[in-house]
Simulated scan of single mutants.
Amino acid sequence: MEHFNAASEEDLEQALLSCLRSLSWARRVAGHRPYPDLDSLLAAADEAAYDLSWPDLTEALAAEPLPTLPPDTYSAAHTALSAAHAAYEARFGHVFVICLDGLSPSETLDRLLAAIRSRLTNDPEEERAVVADELRRLARGRLLHALRGAGQRSACGWRRVGAIDH
């Protein structure tokens, strides 16, 4: 927390943008420092994510990578996932996002395909709520990961790590 609270506003905003690519969210989280502890920071980050408007969420979605499969996944799975992503993007107009923190690589494909197929049945308003929650969960996981590494480098040196991105 010391690195987080002591970082310059600009450096911290850039680091936070690697957790969620929403300038509104990053500025709000950075602007409410100092945080007494991790729980306070996470609560503020969650609240800021819950309060994002659809344009803010669209900004964040535009920077989100598609979830990836483990490298040893067979090619038919890649084809199925590509088709599911295309159908999702055609229906909702943005990339599919899901937080897969805590899943083993062997569970990733099944969870991804089941989630995207299930969410294709959502109406657009329902899906917006799901997307907002998934982005909040992604941001929380990335922020936790960044803070774990902050003890080894300055807050302005935070980097997004692939395993947390998806």
Rank of each mutant, 00 (worst) to 15 (best):
M1S: 10
E2H: 13
F4P: 07
N5G: 10
N5S: 11
A6N: 15
S8Y: 01
E9P: 00
E9K: 01
E10F: 05
L12A: 03
L12S: 01
L12M: 01
E13L: 04
E13M: 11
E13Q: 14
Q14P: 02
Q14E: 13
L17K: 13
C19E: 06
L20E: 07
R21Q: 12
R21T: 06
R21L: 05
S22I: 01
S22M: 05
L23V: 02
S24E: 07
A26E: 03
R27Y: 00
R28Q: 12
R28I: 01
V29R: 00
A30R: 02
G31W: 03
H32W: 04
H32N: 09
R33K: 12
P34K: 07
P34R: 08
Y35T: 03
D37Y: 00
D37M: 01
L38S: 10
D39L: 12
D39K: 15
L42G: 08
L42I: 12
L42R: 14
L42Y: 12
L42Q: 14
A43P: 11
A45K: 09
E47M: 06
A49V: 00
A49P: 08
Y50R: 15
Y50M: 06
S53M: 09
W54V: 15
W54F: 13
D56E: 14
L57E: 08
L57C: 14
A60E: 02
A60M: 02
A60V: 04
A60W: 01
A62I: 03
A62H: 08
A63K: 09
A63S: 12
A63D: 12
E64R: 14
E64W: 05
P67K: 07
P67H: 07
L69D: 11
P70G: 04
P70F: 01
P71A: 13
P71M: 08
